[in-house]
């Protein structure tokens, strides 16, 4: 999973050393990777910390809607695949937290920011998974959108993030295929299964398009992020690519995309599509999504109700270290 940038911070007030800044910008422009110990402008550090930690939080919160169906997966094979997939998300969360930590913020601080509501995660996970077809739709659309976002990030300017993306992308492409395979199977199944599949597409289509973030004219940091190679393509470019790839996939399995304005535009060589309800998007960003409260409660409960386990592990490690020292 991936999150686009939400919650922009105010313009940087610190004045950077112009010489260092020029050297940094030249390196980035030459497609050099920036590594943890290299000098970097504070705004770059802050933007990246926000983006990578949001991405990590999205992986972890994203385990919940799919985890909701592991116990009810309809065959042993589906259960094993879904378990493995959700486990992959946990793994992605782990490398991303590690990548973000190289910028100087600890995992504990990041988790605290998530639980206090200060840090954001992808809006998509604030929607419920109500039928098995939602597991198909998430793999196909949500992971599909994630790949669109992440493939360019393999060349993002920050080395640890770019390297994490290489591995994440491989796994996401498997996730996308397994999701589409679930949908394909449902579409070849009984009328009830087809109904489930179409209903899932109806509910997940627009939220998936929102995953790419606000339209470019309303995305003030895009220019800076593109210049610093934190981002490599704009929100609207990625969204267009996603629509162009996904619509024929829906048609191939007999599903219809819930957008009456959708049509092929010969001259631009892509689809025109209807207006996204940005009010809905901003409401979800504000924390008003249909299951936002459930998601945050699940994460806080997992953390707080199990705090005694982490405390015990620390106490035990301290005792061990003490014994070792005494010996």
């Amino acid at each position: 999973m991936y999150t686009t940038e939400l919650q922009k911070t105010k313009a940087v007030d610190a004045i950077e050393d112009p010489e260092k800044l020029a050297a940094f910008e030249a390196r980035v422009a030459a497609d050099d990777f920036i590594e943890p110990k290299d000098w970097m402008p504070e705004a770059y550090r802050r933007t990246l910390t926000r983006q990578i930690s949001q991405h990590a939080h999205s992986e972890i919160v994203g385990m919940l809607p799919e985890g909701n169906w592991i116990g009810r997966a309809p065959s042993l094979r589906r259960k094993a695949i879904l378990l493995a997939k959700v486990q992959d998300e946990a793994g992605h969360g782990l490398y991303l937290y590690s990548a973000a930590e190289t910028l100087g913020t600890s995992r504990g601080q990041m988790i605290e920011a998530l639980h206090s509501g200060k840090a954001k995660y992808s809006t998509i996970f604030n929607y419920p998974t109500v039928t098995w077809a939602d597991i198909g739709a998430i793999g196909w659309l949500v992971d599909g959108a994630a790949i669109m976002n992440q493939v360019p990030l393999q060349r993002t300017s920050y080395g640890p993030y770019a390297r994490a993306m290489v591995r994440v992308c491989k796994e996401e492409s498997f996730h996308q295929r397994q999701g589409y395979e679930i949908m394909m199977h449902l579409c070849q199944g009984t009328s009830e299964q087809k109904r489930m599949a179409q209903d899932a597409l109806n509910r997940w289509w627009w939220p998936s398009l929102m995953m790419f973030g606000p339209p470019d004219e309303n995305s003030p940091n895009t220019a800076q992020s593109l210049r610093w190679r934190i981002k490599r393509e704009t929100n609207d470019e990625l969204r267009q690519k996603f629509v162009d790839i996904t619509v024929p996939q829906a048609e191939a399995i007999g599903l219809s995309v819930p957008d009456p304005a959708l049509h092929w535009n010969e001259s631009k060589g892509g689809y025109d599509f209807g207006e996204i309800d940005w009010e809905e998007f901003y409401a979800v960003v504000r924390g008003e999504g249909p299951v936002a409260k459930e998601r945050m409660k699940a994460r806080r409960d997992a953390w707080e109700k199990n705090a005694w386990v982490r405390e015990a592990a620390d106490a035990y490690a301290a005792k061990k270290a003490q014994k070792k020292q005494a010996a």
Binding site: L64, A90, G91, G93, A302, A307, R310
Partner: peptide, 20 residues
């Protein structure tokens, strides 16, 4: 598998899912 997404830490979540 009931633990998935609800474990004490990401590492523990991974190990429980692995056993499942």
């Amino acid at each position: 598998a009931e633990w998935t997404g609800h474990a004490p830490s990401v590492e523990v979540d991974l190990s429980l899912a692995n056993m499942a």
